[in-house]
Deep mutational scan, measured.
Amino acid sequence: EKTLKIVADSEEEAEALAKELAEKYNLEVTIERNPEEEGKYVITIKIKP
């Protein structure tokens, strides 16, 4: 299993990107607040072998 993390500037941007990735590529995608940067969100994508 591989994990890729993407940082987005807004929750709306994160949700839109996560939804597109999940639907288009059938990936497991989660969104959470970035504890290191206020106002940023981390999109985590898990790629199963």
Rank of each mutant, 00 (worst) to 15 (best):
L27N: 04
R33G: 04
K2R: 10
L27V: 07
N34V: 12
T30G: 03
K48N: 11
K40A: 05
K24V: 08
I31C: 04
L17V: 06
Y25G: 03
E13I: 09
Y41D: 00
E11N: 05
K2T: 14
E13H: 09
A18Q: 04
E36D: 15
P35Q: 09
I47N: 04
T44C: 08
E23P: 01
A22V: 13
I31T: 02
E23W: 14
I6W: 15
E20G: 07
E23N: 12
K5A: 05
T30S: 10
A14F: 01
P49C: 15
P35Y: 11
V42Q: 03
L17Y: 09
D9T: 06
E37Y: 12
K46T: 11
A8N: 01
L4H: 07
E36F: 11
I6E: 01
L27H: 05
K19Y: 09
E12P: 04
E37W: 12
T3C: 13
K40C: 05
Y41R: 02
E28I: 10
E38C: 14
K2H: 13
E1N: 12
K2L: 14
D9V: 04
P35H: 08
E32M: 14
A14E: 00
N34S: 14
A8K: 08
E28Q: 11
L17F: 10
N26F: 06
E20H: 13
L21E: 00
K19E: 03
A14H: 00
K2S: 11
E32I: 06
L21M: 09
T44D: 01
A18D: 00
T3E: 06
E20A: 13
E12D: 07
K40D: 02
A8I: 11
A22C: 07
P35D: 09
E13D: 05
D9L: 05
L4D: 02
V7G: 08
K24M: 09
E37T: 09
K40V: 07
T3R: 05
Y25V: 01
I47P: 04
Y25T: 02
T44N: 04
E36L: 11
E12T: 06
E1I: 15
Y25N: 02
E36W: 12
K48T: 11
E15I: 14
I45S: 01
E37P: 06
A18L: 07
G39E: 04
E15N: 14
P35G: 09
E1D: 10
K48D: 07
I6T: 01
K5T: 15
E28L: 08
A16N: 08
E12W: 09
N34K: 06
E23Q: 15
L4S: 03
L4F: 15
E1W: 05
L27T: 11
E20T: 14
E15D: 05
E15K: 14
L21P: 00
E38V: 08
E38A: 12
V42T: 07
E28M: 11
L17I: 13
P49E: 07
E36V: 09
K5P: 03
K48A: 09
I47F: 15
A18F: 05
E11I: 13
N34A: 09
E20F: 15
K48L: 11
K40R: 09
K24P: 01
N26L: 05
E36C: 12
A14Q: 00
E36I: 09
N26I: 02
Y41P: 01
I31Q: 01
R33T: 08
I31M: 04
K5R: 12
Y41W: 15
V29C: 12
N34G: 09
A22N: 06
L17S: 01
K2Q: 13
E37I: 12
I6A: 02
K46A: 06
E11C: 08
E20I: 14
P35N: 09
L17H: 02
E15V: 14
K48H: 10
K24E: 02
K19H: 06
K24S: 04
P35W: 10
A22Y: 11
I43A: 01
L21K: 00
T3L: 12
E1V: 14
E20S: 11
E12A: 09
A16M: 09
A16H: 07
K46C: 04
N34T: 06
L27G: 14
P49G: 12
E23T: 12
E13P: 00
K2Y: 04
K5W: 15
K46P: 04
I31P: 00
I47L: 14
A22Q: 13
E20N: 11
E23R: 15
A14I: 02
E12H: 06
A18V: 09
I45M: 07
K40G: 08
A16Y: 10
A18W: 05
Y41V: 04
Y25L: 02
K19R: 11
E23Y: 15
T30I: 09
I6S: 01
E32V: 06
P35S: 10
A16T: 08
E37H: 12
E38Y: 14
V42N: 03
K2D: 08
P49Y: 15
P49H: 13
E28C: 13
K19I: 05
I45D: 00
E23F: 14
V29Q: 00
E13S: 07
A22H: 09
T30N: 06
A14L: 02
L4R: 04
E36R: 10
E11S: 08
I43C: 03
D9G: 10
E32D: 09
E23V: 09
N34E: 07
R33V: 09
P49S: 12
P35K: 10
K19F: 07
I6R: 03
K19C: 06
Y25Q: 02
T30M: 08
L17W: 15
R33W: 05
T44L: 11
P35A: 09
K46D: 03
E15L: 15
T30W: 14
E11G: 04
S10R: 02
K19P: 00
V7T: 10
V7N: 12
K40E: 04
K5L: 10
V42A: 02
E23D: 06
I6V: 05
A8Y: 03
V29F: 14
N26Q: 11
N26P: 02
Y25I: 01
T3Y: 12
I6G: 01
D9M: 05
E32Y: 14
A16I: 08
A8L: 13
K40Y: 04
D9N: 13
E12M: 07
E38G: 14
L17R: 04
L21Y: 12
N34M: 13
P49Q: 12
V7D: 08
T44R: 05
A18T: 03
I47H: 04
I47M: 09
P49F: 15
K40F: 04
T3S: 06
L4Y: 15
K46V: 10
L27S: 10
V7A: 08
L21I: 10
T3V: 13
T30F: 12
N34D: 14
G39W: 07
T3I: 11
E38Q: 12
E23L: 15
Y41S: 01
T30K: 07
E20Y: 15
A18I: 07
I43F: 03
E20C: 15
T44P: 00
L27A: 12
I31Y: 12
S10T: 11
S10P: 00
L21R: 00
V42D: 03
K19M: 06
A18M: 07
